[in-house]
Design a protein around this nucleic acid. Structure first.
Length: 466
RNA sequence: GCGCCCGUAGCUCAAUCGGAUAGAGCACCGGCCUUCUAAGCCGGCGGUUGUGGGUUCGAGUCCCGCCGGGCGCGCCA
């Protein structure tokens, strides 16, 4: 509806330029907005306020001229000038009828546009380490990231949903050691339990499956438990496969599908990490000190330099992260969006600094970050504490089973991503008007009922599960 | 101590690029069931936008200080 209004205004402005009311060369990025207040009509524009100065008149007088110059049309019932020089548009019933016809004709495509037509856009989200079941925080990431991807697609972008697996490195070692300890009959409170081991009960499940020789099938691989508690390598492979499959099942239950699962380990096997380091060294943004290789991130706005290669020869986590984001650029993502928990915001600066230090013409704001704040779970009026000691937390799967997929997704995108959020399980489950999900469902039921009473066939839009 | 995010009605939160009288839901108070679901509708009450300055025609929004909360600050990820 803004487009026809903009067209009318453009014509009016053209007339004013033609008759000399406005200088021939002025243009202003005026806005057409929905009004906040019904008394101000349906839409309003600030055009007169923005152009008054160059017309050498006051906003209200210019607004008068603009309104007088508007072409005749059937969309507008009334046009008023108000306040400091706003022009308020009141739509005619015919305008609404016309819009209804457009909705009906466009069906699912209604409201989409081509702003980002064909633009290759990578949206990375969740990216949980395969070291345990997904929790509510991952759920927020999944819901926010998936909505973002859908919105971008609705703008015509060519969206790729991407999940980055940290399947190499210390955390995975800790996982393997934990499963091994379980397989050897230890429990987390025993003296010999790995120092940074994972303590959750699921570790025992993984160990049992491994010892039974279960076969894990996922993403067209299959891994079979070797039953050998001494083979840390076999355990690692099995455990990662087991937990990746679990996470994939959680995500599927949540209605989120990824196009690319990108493995950190591939960055090593494809020599991308090496290549990245070589380029950074070649461009002179590194130095050696204390047996370690440092990246001069302070050249790019960081508050201190960061170690890239530790004195033991291994890389710190952000180096593959830079290599990963470089690969996004090399794979042709004109736009890359990385959705992260706010507790990782410290890594933003490093990754961006790394990309800039490569001197490959990657834009300064690449990638774009979307951060979400922490989620806490309330049940029975009390916060459900995450027990680090027991390794227990409320899993995404439990929440989906308990309150339903759509309700969980609804609540997780109901608030801005950058404010902390408390998920009240009892509220989400309640069948009362305090539960916004219930309220929305009721509205849907009423619409269906009205259509039924009217004898109108219920089409795709109203029977869609979405 | 430093960095990032947040602070708006009793509660949970909106407020588009800095624009009009800061809006919703819940809660509370009052009205409304012979016809589409009362799981509802209508009305009312409710605000020093944490606080003190600044910028300007105009600030919840931008800048500086302070107060309060969260997260981060490793040759961990």
């Amino acid at each position: 509806m803004k487009e026809p209004l903009r067209l009318l205004l453009d014509q009016a402005l053209e007339r004013l330029r033609a008759d000399g009311t406005l200088p021939a060369d002025v243009a202003a990025p005026f806005a057409i907005e929905r009004t906040k207040n019904r008394e101000h009509g349906d839409f309003a524009t600030n055009a007169a306020m923005l152009l008054a100065k160059s017309a050498r008149t006051n906003p209200r007088a210019l607004a008068q001229a603009l309104v007088a110059a508007l072409p005749q049309n059937s969309l507008l019932a009334k046009v008023e000038i108000a306040g400091p020089g706003f022009i308020n548009f009141f739509l005619s019933p015919a305008a609404y009828h016309e819009e209804m016809r457009r909705v009906h004709a466009a069906t699912q495509a209604y409201g989409t546009n081509r702003i980002a037509a064909g633009r290759r856009t990578g949206v990375e989200f969740v990216s949980a380490n395969p070291t345990g079941p997904l929790h509510i925080g991952h759920g927020r990431a999944a819901a926010v990231g998936d909505c973002l991807a859908r919105l971008l697609a609705a703008e015509g972008a060519q969206v790729v949903r991407e999940f980055y697996y940290n399947d190499a490195g210390v955390q995975i070692d800790n996982l393997a050691k934990s499963v091994q300890a379980r397989a050897k009959g230890m429990t987390p409170d025993d003296a010999g339990w790995p120092a940074d081991g994972y303590r959750g009960d699921y570790i025992g499940d993984v160990a049992n499956a491994y010892l039974r020789g279960d076969t894990i099938e996922f993403e067209d691989h299959a891994v079979t438990g070797a039953k050998d508690a001494d083979s840390l390598d076999a355990i690692r492979q099995f455990a990662v496969a087991y937990l990746r499959r679990e996470q994939n099942m959680d995500l599927e239950a949540f209605g989120v599908k990824f196009d690319v699962y990108f493995l950190e380990s591939s960055l090593y096997s494809d020599r991308k990490v090496e290549e990245t380091v070589r380029e950074l060294v070649a461009h002179g943004h590194t130095y050696e000190e204390g047996g370690a290789l440092w990246l001069r991130t302070t050249d790019f706005g960081d508050d201190k330099d960061r170690v890239m290669r530790k004195s033991d020869g291994t890389y710190t986590y952000f180096v593959p992260d830079v290599a990963y984001h470089l690969s996004k650029w090399q794979r042709g993502y004109a736009r890359a969006i990385t959705e992260l928990g706010a507790d990782h915001h410290g890594s933003l600066m490093r990754v961006k600094a790394g990309l800039q230090a490569l001197e490959m013409g990657i834009p300064k704001d690449y990638p774009e970050y979307v951060l979400h704040q922490m989620v806490t779970v309330m049940r029975g009026g009390e916060e459900v504490k995450i027990s680090k000691r027991a390794g227990s937390y409320v899993t995404l799967r439990e929440l989906i089973d308990e309150v339903g997929r759509d309700a969980v997704r609804f609540f997780l995108v109901y608030r801005k991503a950058d404010t902390e959020f408390t998920f009240d399980v009892d509220l989400a489950r309640s069948q009362t008007e305090e539960n916004p999900v219930y309220y929305v469902q009721y509205a849907h039921a009423r619409v269906c009922s009205v259509l039924k009473q009217a004898g109108v066939a219920i089409g795709d839009a109203s029977t869609s599960r979405r």
